[in-house]
Structures are given as C-alpha cells and as structure tokens.
C-alpha cells in the first residue's frame, strides 16, 4: 500500500469501518509511514473533539420571539381552537368529514329548533299541557312499541358499549367533551319527549325526536372511533 491508497481509506480506518484485510494492510503501512501516521493522528483528534464541541447559547429574547409567534398562530375562533386542541390531544390531523360536520351543524339546528318549539309551546299552549304527566307513561309505552325508536335504542345501546370499552384510552379532555355532548343531546331528547307527550299526534315533534335520536347515534359513532 502506498500513501495515496492509504489516504483513500484512512477515514474509514479512523471510523473502524474497514474490512479485516484492508485494516491489516493500512496498519502495516502506518507502521512504516510517519506522514500517514500524522494524518491518522490528526483525524482521530478531529473526530474525537468533534463530539465534544461546546454548546452555543442563543440570545435571551429568542424565547420571547417564539412565544409571540405562537400566540399569533393561536386559532382565533372557538371552532378552530377546539379543533387544534383535539389535534394536539390525539396527535393526528383531526378532520371532520363533510357528513360529520353536517351532523354537528344539524345537531345545532335541532337543538335550536327544539328550543324555539319548546318556547312557543310553553308560551302559547300551556292549558293543553296540564295533564302532561299521565301522558308521559303513555308516551313511553308508545315509543317502546314503535319499531323505528326501538331500532334507535338498540343501536344506541350497542354504541354505548363500544364507547365504554374505548373510554379507558381517553384523556380527561375527551371524556369531558363526551359527557358534555351526551348531556346536551339527552337534554334535547328529553325536550322532544316532553313535547311529544303533550302532543302525541304531532308529527313535527315525532320528527324532532327522531332527529335527536339520529344525532345521538352519530355522536356516539364518532366517539366510538376514538
């Protein structure tokens, strides 16, 4: 081996990456060549000290700059903030599909509609609701016998079981979000039931109740996937 051949593989030698045969050859050359030994020694030192370089310190206002940028990036809307928190919480690009988004929008409309209807009924038809309590029992019986509501109840029961199994993996924020959603939807369902109990033949009330059930199913499906 001559000096040029030695130079070609000396970095691999310094890194301990040579095959045994090449290593034997270069060591034989190094034993007899002071110039190449000096190169080896210098490279060993460079490699050695490169792993011990001092750390540099940025200027003290860098954190302030970063903080300002972060605050400027903070989503301004409630929706964007919630979405961002969910993204952070679950570590993925959390996106509602169009149907999911439509479902949420529909839920908001239903809740608002129920509120309006309840308000109207409470304010315009109070005498008609005087015997509401006995009608509740009749309603429960009627709902229990209605195949479409039975189907809802069955689906909701299954989904709740799935959700219960998933709950252990949830963080506190998701649990809270779930409880809030359920409280809101159950409140809507109760409102619908009350309306229906007062107006058992009101098709609008029936439709509202069905929509509320649908929303509960959709929300449970969403949480069952977390």
């Amino acid at each position: 081996m001559n000096c040029q051949e030695c130079e070609e593989i000396i970095s691999d030698y310094v890194d301990g990456a040579l095959e045994p045969g090449a290593q034997t050859k270069i060591e034989h050359h190094l034993a007899n060549c002071e110039a190449c030994r000096a190169v080896r020694d210098d490279l060993l030192q460079i490699v050695h000290f490169s792993k011990q370089l001092p750390l540099h310190i940025p200027t003290s206002d860098l954190w302030s700059r970063i903080q300002t940028e972060i605050e400027a990036e903070q989503p301004k809307t409630w929706w964007a903030r919630s979405k961002a928190r969910l993204q952070n919480l679950y570590g993925r690009d959390f996106k509602f599909s169009i149907p999911q988004f439509a479902a949420i929008a529909a839920a908001c409309i239903i809740v608002a509609a129920i509120g309006v209807v309840v308000w109207q009924k409470n304010n315009s038809q109070v005498p008609q609701f005087a015997n509401a309590a006995p009608a509740d029992n009749q309603l429960q019986t009627k709902l229990a016998n209605d195949p479409s509501f039975q189907e809802f109840e069955q689906t909701i029961k299954q989904l709740k079981e799935s959700v219960e199994q998933r709950k252990d993996t949830w963080g506190p924020e998701l649990r809270l979000s779930f409880e809030r959603n359920m409280t809101s939807i159950d409140q809507s369902l109760n409102d619908c039931r009350q309306l229906l109990s007062r107006n058992p033949n009101d098709e609008t009330c029936k439709e509202l109740l069905k929509n509320a059930y649908s929303e509960k199913v959709r929300v449970l499906q969403g949480f069952a996937n977390f």
Binding site: Q4, R37, Q45
Partner: peptide
C-alpha cells in the same frame, strides 16, 4: 471520491488539540 492531493504536511504528531483548539475546531 477524489482523493488526489490529500497527502498534506502532517501536524506535529506530538501536538494535542487543547481546549483552545476545540474552539478553533468549532
């Protein structure tokens, strides 16, 4: 890899890179 002209005049083999040299290296 082009390894021509890489045989340089060696550093003094007895010279060690000191703390100051570490900064020089950086």
């Amino acid at each position: 890899g082009d390894f021509t002209n890489v045989v340089e005049t060696p550093l003094q083999s007895t010279r060690r890179i000191s703390m100051v040299d570490r900064l020089d290296l950086d």
